[in-house]
Design a protein around this nucleic acid. Structure first.
Lengths: 194, 194
DNA sequence: TTGGCGTTTAACAAAAATGTTAAACACAAT
DNA sequence: ATTGTGTTTAACATTTTTGTTAAACGCCAA
């Protein structure tokens, strides 16, 4: 079979991701996405049958990407401290690229009533145990380890969601904001690890 | 004139706020809002002329509410430490009620190209100066005061945006999650103020 | 009670977004 | 060159969402 694969299917998905995850335009229509991709809107239906299927597929791939990214860090054979360091690097780099990805997944999961699979729960549970161990060893401040995780992800994710407000509020341009966000990697690590 | 005022206009706005800010259903249509409010959809047009005007008005009021709330704390005649404490109380209580309010404002401001007014910028600048002073006095860790603010708001806001994920991830119900969020008030204060 | 006025409703119209179809296109293999 | 197959396009159809209008309703005051 001559699977020609002009890359259009991937282009549409990538464009949708760009619009949703990077630009945060959650109201985008299939026409908006097709225009941004420079293709005929009908191709959305040709490749994905329906708008909802495209959107859900985009959400599903986002879940998989985020999951793989965390898995790669959590399962690494590293000291806990080093794991946290790598987590911050990996997560922040992604968050800089796709600040709205998690929000998209949250709101999309809400619509489709998607629950977190046991596999991910177990992975987190394992990491929480590691956090607790580190607390026992007196290396990080004692607290409910769930708070520890929430703190960590909050510090990484939120400033990128609110980029446009902050840029306006502090009168800084994209380049300066990017610098600020890169600074945060070290700052968050110190804050968590003191 | 007999201004009858049946409260319907307010009801529609409150319902829209509930749906957008509390439930995070950003895709809601005017029909969805009318249904939730238990009124005829035409009333949306009667009172607000168009969907866009309602949505923008809701966003504008959200901006005003958030602004007033911060203003009340920032302008209070209090020690810096006490200000931070009150800020956390006030902001967290609001964030528990309306976790998605800021996100709504961010995405809506993006569509309407709304910039932060000078008044708010100045207010923040003043508070940043107070932060710096407190750092000089050695009461909080020295850092770019903008990071200090971003840290503070991140820790307060993000866990509430991701409520549905966290509840599923940690297998906890609404009541337990609320308890966890209330715990955060103290925890964040300690984290910021060490 | 009745006329006026703000409110509500239903029926209709218009616009926007999505989905379908058949034909045109383009490339590779025969 | 021709055939087959995957891709793209345009025209059309359908559905969804939004906006408009006129009539009905209900309360209050004259």
């Amino acid at each position: 079979m001559a699977q020609r694969d002009t890359g259009t299917e991937q282009l549409i998905k990538d464009t949708a991701k760009q619009i949703f995850f990077s630009e945060g335009k959650f109201h985008a229509t299939t026409q908006d996405i097709a225009d941004a991709a420079g293709v005929n809107r009908t191709l959305v239906n040709y490749y994905f049958r329906s708008r909802d299927i495209l959107f859900e597929q985009v959400a599903e791939e986002a879940r998989a990407e985020m999951s793989a990214q965390l898995e790669s860090v959590f399962s690494a054979k590293l000291e806990f401290k080093e794991k946290v360091h790598r987590l911050i690097t990996v997560f922040m780099d992604q968050a800089i690229k796709f600040p709205y990805r998690e929000i998209y997944v949250v709101t999309e999961s809400k619509r489709t009533e998607k629950a977190v699979p046991d596999e991910k729960k177990n992975r987190i549970r394992k990491f929480l145990a590691e956090v607790e161990e580190e607390m026992e060893l007196g290396r990080i401040k004692k607290m409910d380890p769930r708070h520890f995780l929430m703190n960590l992800f909050s510090l990484m994710a939120y400033p990128l969601i609110t980029t446009c407000i902050n840029k306006s509020l502090y009168n800084i341009n994209d380049k300066e904001y990017l610098k600020l966000m890169k600074e945060r990697k070290q700052l968050i690590f110190e804050m968590i690890y003191q």
